[in-house]
């Protein structure tokens, strides 16, 4: 299988503090990599380094063997190939749902408006929101907004999708509708890097789990192996924090 995304010795500092240390990760085409770890372990920052939203102090990130570097001219070109979905959806409040999902394809990729809208409507229909095409984001629920944000990322035909704790801001009953969309994308063979706190979901969707703690990759394993037999003490402790036992 060919490699889509590679990080080599990625090192990130913020105000003199090391946030990420020597991260080496290879994501192959069609692979779903899920990153888990305690809050503040650097997993969201890592995701943001992957499309150049954060600067890195050492090492490099490669997409299709091309270096991603903040401040470089080719950055917008590279970003077209990386779809990213944020925790807080970040739909554009002044645009309708249809305008939200077609803005970048029309303005950045210079695609035909009618063709982009046709594709958008088909994708919105898939998530059951074609009836909301003329609504504004504030008229949608959190779960609906997040599904639209996923469609917006898909509209760019990205080679890889990054999900940054996309259910963390949602009410519990809306989490499933979003996760099911992501699961469906995984089944289609999409390449994805997912940061999440939903452990059951991580186990179901992942081809590989990365456990990040203190800015370092502590463990890297197949999901079943990671959740049943974590190798390190830190991973064990982390997983235990999710289970409840009556004492």
């Amino acid at each position: 299988m060919n490699e889509i995304l590679v990080t080599e010795h990625l090192h990130k500092e913020y105000e003199g503090m090391t946030v990420l240390e020597d991260i080496n990760l290879t994501v192959k085409k069609g692979e779903v990599v899920v990153i888990v770890g305690p809050s503040g372990c650097g997993k969201s920052t890592f995701l943001r380094c992957l499309n150049g939203l954060e600067t890195i102090q050492d090492g490099r990130v490669l997409l299709d063997n091309e270096v991603i570097n903040p401040g470089r001219k080719n950055l917008t070109k590279v970003r077209e190939k990386i779809g990213m979905v944020f925790q807080s959806y970040e739909l554009f409040p002044h645009k309708t749902i249809l305008q939200n999902v077609t803005l970048a394809p029309i303005k950045v990729q210079k695609r035909d408006k009618a063709e982009a809208q046709k594709e958008a409507l088909a994708l919105l229909a898939r998530i059951g929101l074609e009836g909301k095409k003329d609504s504004y984001p504030r008229q949608l629920s959190g779960g609906q907004k997040q599904r639209v944000a996923i469609v917006r990322a898909l509209m760019m035909h990205p080679e890889i999708l990054l999900f940054d704790e996309v259910t963390a801001a949602l009410d519990p009953e809306m989490v499933r509708e979003v996760l099911e969309v992501i699961l469906a994308l995984a089944k289609e063979g999409r390449t994805m890097v997912i940061v999440t706190h939903e452990m059951a979901f991580a186990r179901a969707v992942a081809d590989r789990i990365i456990f990040l703690d203190g800015g370092q990759i502590i463990e890297e394993a197949a999901p079943d192996a990671f959740f049943t037999h974590p190798q390190t003490g830190r991973a064990k402790k982390f997983l235990e924090s999710f289970s409840y036992e009556k004492k």
């Binding site: 499309n51 939203l53 917008t76 070109k77 970003r79 077209e80 990386i82 779809g83 990213m84 944020f86 970040e90 554009f92 803005l103 970048a104 303005k107 950045v108 990729q109 917006r152 990322a153 760019m156």
Partner: peptide
């Protein structure tokens, strides 16, 4: 950042 991530 969202706009940037979309390639704008």
């Amino acid at each position: 950042e969202t706009a940037q991530a979309l390639g704008l």
